[in-house]
Design a protein around this nucleic acid. Structure first.
Length: 176
DNA sequence: CAGGATCTACTTG
DNA sequence: CAAGTAGATCCTG
């Protein structure tokens, strides 16, 4: 299920938690990386030649990202390019976007919502393969009975994001 | 074919 | 209750 839509440009996004890195393809936002010391961005010189459409998308990405980090539901998103994922993964990612800001689901609920109730474990895999964390809210997926589950970007990020969204009932959350 | 960001049921202190 | 175990299930590379 691989597509030809590759990331053609990476741009930085300044936030209070550090500098995120957004990757764009011809179709839209295709990747979002957590602040990483070794992140490679385009130089300012190259930014000058950034296509107009991408400039607009980047603006939306920045607004949406910072909005979430500030505890507010974003009003608008840039177009997502999810063509790198398999059919199953794309179905999961679509389901993730149905979770409202501040709400949470369990892996089992996501599996059920895509009519594949037994694929709970596979859903976990698809979440880990999510190319656009935060905007596609993989952090709003918890395990059953108040367990936090995992997170590919680091479990602490998951906690930070959830707190940003007002879920402070963390005393009850258990680890693995 | 092995392994994972799971789940449920069951067994022990 | 809390914690640990086993088996079931399904997508990926």
């Amino acid at each position: 299920m691989k597509q030809t839509s590759e990331v053609i440009l990476k741009l930085p996004i300044q936030t209070e938690f550090g500098v995120f890195c957004a990757g764009y393809s011809e179709a839209g936002l295709a990747a979002l990386d957590f602040p990483d010391a070794a992140a490679a961005y385009e130089t300012p010189e190259l930014s000058a030649r950034v296509p107009k459409s991408i400039t607009a998308w980047h603006e939306l990405t920045g607004e949406a990202l910072n909005s979430i980090l500030a505890g507010q539901a974003p009003k608008r998103f840039p177009p997502f390019d999810l063509s790198a994922g398999t059919d199953f993964q794309q179905r999961v990612w679509k389901a993730l976007q149905q979770i409202a800001f501040g709400q949470t689901r369990t892996y089992a609920e996501i599996a059920a919502s895509i009519n594949n109730p037994r694929a709970v474990r596979a859903v976990g895999g698809a979440c880990g393969a999510n190319p656009i964390p935060v905007l596609i809210p993989c952090h709003r997926v918890l395990a059953s009975h108040n367990k936090i589950g995992g997170f590919s970007g680091g479990l602490n990020w998951k906690r930070i994001l959830l707190e940003c969204e007002g879920r402070r009932t963390w005393g009850a959350l258990r680890d693995a």
